[in-house]
């Protein structure tokens, strides 16, 4: 509409975000520990040759890039949706306990040795944990539609899941198992296969679709819960959709890539002003922004320390934690 509301025209903003995603996706396909010439790689893939080059492309880099795309989009979207619903720019997928519960589920799969029995036990454990976490949050929050009870229930689930995760680490008989759990908890997209893609994709897509349906109610929430309700939006239903959409998408994402924090916090914050502070526009923008950011971070970890690869969850935490602090200070200043 107007220049003040949108510093960058919306079509341009979305085109730029889209371009950033495409560039990061292609970049992710081209970068890796195997020293393959870009021209050679493209020629081999386009010609459909069979050999180590195409094998690396299809078995290692493509699934990794697809997961980066999906998981980044999920984290950005859920961050924006939760911030809109809770009307709090500090909200994050982790806040409603989904990430912690998903981590716990996957850790238990490690702990009981299920992960070594069959590879898919890990993602299944994560999604089961996420689903249970959501159910407990729903039970704790009860019939109240207030964001505060929601946050408190999320904090309770997060603390309890973290405590049980620590217990599993503490009781692990085998130090290697504990180390494996630790590494998995750090969050990474490395060494994932198409199996992980197929397993998580349906849940991630369904979750994201559900989350897109809350866009308009989130706009209405700009005026507060009562006004939104009198504008014909059932806030209880909005909350349920938000919880289940987040559980499906973040649960599936966490279970294949571990806990990758702060993407859902940073991306909506950076894009909010550019979308005129409108939640319904921030959702798709954060989806694109999240994908671009995570793909870029995943390229960065491969370039920064090629030998012992830095875990992407560690990188996002290193950047995200100071950012979180900055946001808290900014909020405090506004309150004073």
């Amino acid at each position: 509409m107007r220049s003040k509301n949108y510093p960058v025209p919306l079509p341009l903003l979305f085109s730029l975000l889209g371009l950033a995603v495409v560039a990061a996706f292609v970049g992710s396909l081209l970068v890796g520990p195997a020293d393959i010439d870009i021209g050679e790689l493209l020629a081999a893939v386009l010609a459909g040759e069979e050999g180590s080059t195409t094998l690396i492309f299809y078995e290692i880099r493509l699934p990794r890039a697809i997961l980066g795309l999906m998981i980044g989009a999920t984290l950005g979207l859920t961050g924006a949706a939760l911030q809109g619903f809770l009307r709090n720019p500090l909200a994050e997928p982790g806040i409603i306990g989904v990430s912690a519960a998903a981590s716990l589920g996957a850790v238990l799969a490690f702990y009981f040795g299920l992960a070594s029995l069959f590879a898919l036990a890990l993602p299944f454990g994560g999604m089961l944990g996420a689903a249970l976490g959501v159910l407990v949050v729903q039970l704790l929050a009860g019939k109240s539609n207030s964001p505060l009870t929601f946050i408190l229930a999320g904090v309770a689930v997060t603390s309890f899941a973290a405590a049980l995760t620590s217990l599993a680490l503490n009781m692990a008989e085998n130090p290697f198992a504990a180390l494996e759990i630790m590494f998995w908890l750090l969050g990474s997209l490395a060494d994932r296969s198409f199996e992980h893609v197929w397993l998580s994709a349906p849940f991630i897509l369904l979750g994201c679709l559900i989350l897109m349906t809350v866009a308009r109610p989130l706009d209405a929430l700009t005026l507060g819960e009562e006004a939104a309700q009198t504008m014909g939006f059932d806030m209880g239903a909005v909350r349920r959709r938000l919880v289940f959409g987040t559980a499906l998408s973040v649960g599936a994402a966490t279970s294949v890539a571990g806990a990758i924090g702060f993407v859902g916090l940073i991306v909506p914050h950076l894009l909010r002003g550019l979308t005129g502070n409108r939640p319904s526009l921030l959702l798709p923008a954060s989806m694109l922004g999240g994908a671009a950011l995570l793909l870029t971070a995943d390229i960065a970890v491969r370039l920064l320390s090629p030998g012992r690869e830095l875990k992407i969850g560690v990188l996002t935490a290193l950047i995200g934690a100071p950012f979180f602090l900055y946001l808290v200070l900014q909020q405090r200043r506004r309150l004073l």
């Binding site: 509409m1 107007r2 003040k4 509301n5 009307r87 308009r216 706009d219 209405a220 929430l221 700009t222 005026l223 507060g224 006004a227 504008m231 014909g232 939006f233 909010r272 005129g276 502070n277 409108r278 939640p279």
Partner: peptide, 18 residues
């Protein structure tokens, strides 16, 4: 209550959501 800093026109247009 107004939670996000939108422009006057955008805010008034929220009245059209129903």
């Amino acid at each position: 209550e107004v939670n996000w800093d939108v422009t006057v026109e955008v805010l008034v247009a929220l009245g059209r959501l129903p």
